[in-house]
Design a protein around this nucleic acid. Sequence first.
DNA 1: TCTGGGGTCCTAGGACCC
DNA 2: TCTGGGGTCCTAGGACCC
Length: 399
Amino acid sequence: MLRRIIFHIDVNSAFLSWTAVKRVQEGLPDIREVPSVVSGDPSDRRSIITAASIPAKKLGIKTAEPVSMALRKCPSLVIVRGDWEWYRRCSEGFIGICRSYSPVLQQFSIDECFLDMSFRCAGEDPVAVATRLKDEIHSRLGFTVNVGIGSNKLLAKMASDFEKPDKVHTLWLDEVPLKMWPLGVRDLLWVGKKTEERLVSSGIKTIGELAHLGMDSLTGLVGRKFAWQLHENANGRDDSPVETEVPEAKSCSAERTFPEDLSDPKDIDKALFKVACIVAHRIRKDGFRASTVSMFIKYKDFTVAQKQCRTHQPTDVTAVILGEARRMLSEVWDGATPIRQVGIGVSKLTHEKTEQMSLFEDPRMEYYREWDRRYDEQRSDASETTGTRKDANPTGPKG
DNA sequence: TCTGGGGTCCTAGGACCC
DNA sequence: TCTGGGGTCCTAGGACCC
């Protein structure tokens, strides 16, 4: 019986490190050594921090906080824009090196992966192998990673989150009481803000306390299914395999947040049109058709109104998706309340090619399909270096 | 201080069928 | 005439991840 050995490799402040590597290559100062962040458009008052350097984090600057807020904490903060095409290339290089250590690799996001090292590490010290992997990535690609080692994915992932950067940590099952139980519940995977609030208000502050909580009490707090998972994970148990297959996308969406809240229906419709084009283009590119369309708007106070509907048949036609979205918008919006964000999503995706040509099909459909063909041509001409929103998504299909 | 963009999974309630 | 219970599909909403 092979001892199960899983690595979790996590790029330290990925987008910031990757930007730094590029700038160093161009002879610019290393932004990893000063308070710096990667963000969206810095002139947009609504953009947020995508990644922060360690000196920035020491000043209290956190990922996902507004740039304006970070600037108040550090007026001399260096702000750089993301370069998604470059990130994609860095990710490929990083994944490639990891794969050379074991073919049983699961890419978890653009900057994280799991490796099943049970076979590769048999008879060898896992820490030595992990250190070699980490150093090889650093010397060949110029950025650092953390490697977490454990007997399952959960423990490996928890371990890679220990002290950073450029470190290897183990978290074997027998180390759980010492290394994991003293941590706050929020540090456990799947415990977010809401679950933390619920647990802490019941006196459960640490992962150890969670591990020893009776299932009945936990079920009362978070529901049966989630309670079971939390209980297992708090005790260091996780039997999920390292999935080498890239799962098919189940949904696709695009949204746009306005620099200022908008209330003119013409402006809203313009944005709706743009996001419909993006979503429809993406599913066509991947050969999908969608049977469900959803539309959502977000108001100033962040409340969301959304609607979804089934289409008559699976579709990838922009005009059909837009038509459904427009109809649903008119059902949820009064046409006057200012809107912060609009978005469109599609789901129930299939690769079905056989589209039934209804006798009653809208005669304009052929025109719409031609329009889409031209749109797709243009998008592919525009080359991916401009960075589509898909590239901006670290967890999107195919990373 | 004022909050992006893109995903996954789960739950609850209603409609409908047998 | 009045009644049960189970299964499935759909929509809405919430929580989590990076």
